[in-house]
Nucleic acid binder design. Sequence first.
DNA 1: ACGAGGGTTAAGGCAGGGTTAACGCAATAT
DNA 2: ATATTGCGTTAACCCTGCCTTAACCCTCGT
Lengths: 226, 226
Amino acid sequence: MIRVLLVEDDIGLAGNVLDYLELEDMQCDHASNGVAALQLINQHQYDVLVLDINLPRLDGLSVCERMRNDGNDTPVIMLTARDQLEDKLAGFQKGADDYLVKPFAMAELVARVTALAGRRSAQVNQVAMGNVTLKINGQEAQAGSNDIKLSPITYALLKKLMLAKGEVVSRERLIEAAWKDSVPESNVLKVHMHHLRKALEHANASISVSSKPNSGFYLAQDADHG
Amino acid sequence: MIRVLLVEDDIGLAGNVLDYLELEDMQCDHASNGVAALQLINQHQYDVLVLDINLPRLDGLSVCERMRNDGNDTPVIMLTARDQLEDKLAGFQKGADDYLVKPFAMAELVARVTALAGRRSAQVNQVAMGNVTLKINGQEAQAGSNDIKLSPITYALLKKLMLAKGEVVSRERLIEAAWKDSVPESNVLKVHMHHLRKALEHANASISVSSKPNSGFYLAQDADHG
DNA sequence: ACGAGGGTTAAGGCAGGGTTAACGCAATAT
DNA sequence: ATATTGCGTTAACCCTGCCTTAACCCTCGT
């Protein structure tokens, strides 16, 4: 069951969309202004948000930006009546994952919602996992209230791993994330992974780095943390 | 650095796209037919594929379907000149993650590529038999909720056997599936078959490996599993 | 009975991953 | 100018898991 929140102030359009999505067996909530939307977003767990850009009280772009700053990684589809490309791009930069220009076909909306549901957005400004939170820029991370002591390289590695949300990240990707241009040799990665593990452990993090042979590394919940 | 593979037979359009993506600091490869595309996909690791639907030799939908069957989970953006919604939906079902209708604005393509890069597609395939499911890539399989502990070789063997859906697979085929190029001697296959049997048993699988004398091996439902 | 095909087990070797210590270098402090 | 500190790199070493090999066992048909 896909759960959708529609934020749209045009009552007629909203009604149509709601009817159609429910026909497709999705569970829909509805908000008609930005402030109400944020409340619902914080209280519930949605699979996809459908956000109009022009909204009373707080516009769609701002809603999106705020939830991303709160670390919410629910995928967002933007709706806009203005079909200038500039608006669309602005939407993406505020953290949207997709957009649709009004008027749109209902079937198209359904297709895009289905495509995004189950994914997590990569557009967050802060990532969380277990008791660990990491600011996407700012080079800092915490476990609960403890700061995690990270060097630039270990920070880059942790960031890459957290953005993968527990999925395996290959050595190549990690190296590319930490060293951009120049590629050092020998077993640097192993050593820094070790530093990272120690740093997490030392800060009492509830997650730790695991390795999958011949594939790469991933983050996993620690056994002994409640 | 985002790595993109563009598959497009219209040379003019392809050139434009390549120029534009490179301006955006993306690393681009290009193929102009479906067969060449599959080769590149297997050899390299891309972040996003941009796939035209109408292609010489092998059409885009088939390319997408095949790579998904090989377990490749790279995100795919489909391009199509036909703007009927039906075509788009067909694309999604073959495992695409997004689509774009020609003609499109370059900035829009860039926005969608950026949105998808770094994600993994959720559209990968898996095989099932009895209570056992096996992910076509990822090198992992489960029996019910238990993970089956598999080494690369035993994984390859199980995959081959499961894809045969209970039919007998000859020793030659199995060896070819597990050892690609170099062919070891002695009784390696026997030993790994034994490991595989133990792994299945240990994970409480409802299927097991049987042998047909002078022919090969096949999977069969276990007698004592309901 | 015996030989072939198949199954089982244990031992050796290798590669990949983890750990540790030492060195170099730059930025800061004394 | 000289210590000190922090970080990145290198290299050596250990350990574990996997692949291979080889030997042995079982059983069925002739």
